[in-house]
Computed example of a mutant assay.
Amino acid sequence: MRFHTRKWVKPEDLNPNGTLFGGKLLAWLDEELALYAIIQLENPRIVTKHMSEINFRSSARQGDIIEIGIDVVKFGTTSLVLKSEARNMMTRETIITIDTTTMVSLDENGKPKPHGKTEIEYISDRLED
């Protein structure tokens, strides 16, 4: 799993129990997945179509640092299927795993658009020599 982003748990991210609100973490994950798909598919029009079972395994408290990881599961014709994990860097525990999230590339009319990608590209792949 490639870990791309870190988030700092602040007071506004907490639930009444004093731990990280699950909805906040899901919002962070969805945003990171969208950004990853936008970059991979080179299209700013990306939507989340589906998330598989969401498995909360531990939590986080104020001041903890959360690391978000993403891996590509597969490239579809108009979609990119991703696997994600968020872990607490302070406790070294996995907080959440999502086996598959399907991100769909759209055209200017909001309809699924083939993207023509078949493998992960890195910035270095796109730079000219």
Rank of each mutant, 00 (worst) to 15 (best):
R2M: 04
F3I: 14
H4A: 01
W8Q: 08
V9M: 09
P11Q: 00
E12C: 06
D13L: 04
N15F: 05
N15V: 01
N15I: 06
N17L: 15
N17C: 06
L20W: 09
L20C: 00
F21L: 09
L25D: 09
L26Y: 08
A27C: 00
A27T: 13
W28T: 06
D30N: 14
E32P: 00
L33N: 02
L33G: 07
A34W: 06
A37R: 00
I38V: 15
L41D: 00
E42G: 06
P44K: 11
H50R: 10
H50E: 04
M51R: 12
I54G: 08
R61M: 12
Q62G: 05
G63I: 03
D64G: 07
I66H: 03
E67F: 09
G69N: 08
I70R: 03
D71A: 08
V72F: 07
V72C: 04
V73I: 12
V73H: 13
G76F: 04
G76W: 01
L80R: 01
A86F: 04
A86W: 01
R87G: 06
N88A: 14
M89S: 11
M90E: 12
R92M: 08
I96D: 02
I98Q: 03
D99H: 13
T100F: 08
T100L: 04
T101N: 06
M103L: 15
M103T: 10
L106A: 12
D107L: 00
E108L: 10
N109K: 15
N109I: 00
G110K: 12
P112Q: 08
P114W: 10
G116S: 05
I120G: 00
I120T: 10
I120K: 12
Y122G: 07
S124P: 04
D125E: 01
D125L: 06
L127F: 12
E128N: 15
D129N: 15
D129V: 13
